[in-house]
Amino acid sequence: MAEIRADREVCVGAGMCALTAPELFDQDDEDGRVVVLVTRPEAELRERAREAVRLCPSGALSLSEEA
């Protein structure tokens, strides 16, 4: 299992997640902050999720992965 967590207070709305993995992330129309579309991504989307977490400028995203 892998679970995406997003801290909307830390998010700075740069849009890197929505640009990198639009299947998994969106931005709130009002405040521009992250909206997680898929909390538990399927195996084939996990690398995209990891890349979005790595690219997030504010450190608002994390992915907990269990074996």
Binding site: E9, V12, G13, G15, A18, L19, P22, D26, Q27, D28, D29, E30, D31, G32, R33
Partner: peptide, 15 residues
């Protein structure tokens, strides 16, 4: 953060 959050909704990927 206070100021940036007032503007982030205006510069999203979709907008």
């Amino acid at each position: 953060t206070h100021y940036r959050h007032l503007l982030t909704g205006q510069f999203t990927v979709r907008r």
